[in-house]
Design a protein around this nucleic acid. Structure first.
Lengths: 174, 174
DNA sequence: ACCTGAACACCGTTCAAGT
DNA sequence: ACCTGAACACCGTTCAAGT
């Protein structure tokens, strides 16, 4: 006898994303997710293979979210980089998790793709890919260090960010 | 009646570091560490408060190791950055863990200190700190993405690394 | 003093039994 | 067809009892 579905794959992933931001990776337990979607833990295994698969789905949803925002910007280098930073500030745990394990193929194909075009315009087509990697690496590392609280020698972090972006522009336009 | 000590704090941390590289963060269990140092899990609590404290000690030891290597190099920007990359390749899990939570104060005070001097020579004393942050952010992000396998649009990764370092030099020397 | 077995709480996962 | 309680394995942690 069929039973109405009491939750869904997307509801589970969304609950996972929220839980991650609220209580960190250790708070992302099957029981906590189940409780949040109104079901018992064993029921989750009808929708996700196991906890690792759920985490991978959370990462994929995060990357997809980020890619949409980058695509919705005006795609200038400035806008892309500031959108990226705003995203990392809004979902710090999700941002970290994107680089914790193996990143999904989408990452560079979509998120990265928007930057390749913009960076290529500055550095020339021949160096578009290398230039995009320079910018994304800098932004990613800056945010990772900012979130980890690794900038503690004083100075203004926003100033350091602007300085970095300006220096990258100079370096690329040569 | 006194009992001879069967292990030590440093033996525990060393075992933790090795275990981390061999089987990832999930493999870093109290039981596995205990077995490796030849003791039962409860005995570890004589030396470390709990698993989180052990992980923090592993991170601290990793940062200390890195700082020593940077200090032992010729401290040119080139040498610092290549030493950093070699370290990340040698201990990828330890490198990741350094940015997973709150980084220890040492990170920028020692490891970062070596770069501030070198970057200041290029960009001028007034921008030494911002310049150092640009370089470390780039290198950190590049390695994080390289380790996560996020560079998958083709192209040579070593070439991208060299390109980035050269572009940073140009951007800083202005 | 340090070490251990036993015990407890908690989590991931499976599965037979419910509807 | 989906949901659940019960059960199991595994891990972190505490503690009384050993030496």
């Amino acid at each position: 006898m069929p039973t109405p579905e009491r939750t869904s794959h997307t509801a589970i992933v969304d609950a996972g994303r929220d839980l991650l931001e609220e209580s960190g990776p250790n708070g992302l337990t099957m029981q906590a997710v189940a409780q949040r979607v109104g079901v018992r833990a064993p029921s989750l295994y009808k929708r996700v293979r196991d906890r690792d698969a759920l985490i991978a789905a959370v990462v994929a949803a995060t990357v997809d979210d980020l890619a949409h925002r980058l695509e919705a910007s005006d795609r200038s280098l400035e806008a892309l980089v500031r959108t990226y930073r705003a995203f990392a500030h809004e979902r710090p745990e999700g941002f970290r998790l994107m680089f914790a394990g193996a990143a999904p193929q989408e990452l560079l194909e979509r998120a990265g793709g928007t930057i390749v075009a913009s960076a290529g315009a500055l550095a020339g087509e021949a160096h578009a890919l290398d230039a995009a990697r320079l910018v994304t690496a800098w932004a990613t590392g800056f945010l990772q260090m900012e979130l980890a609280g690794a900038f503690r020698l004083g100075g203004d972090i926003d100033v350091a960010f602007d300085y970095g972006l300006a220096a990258l522009r100079r370096g690329l336009a040569s």
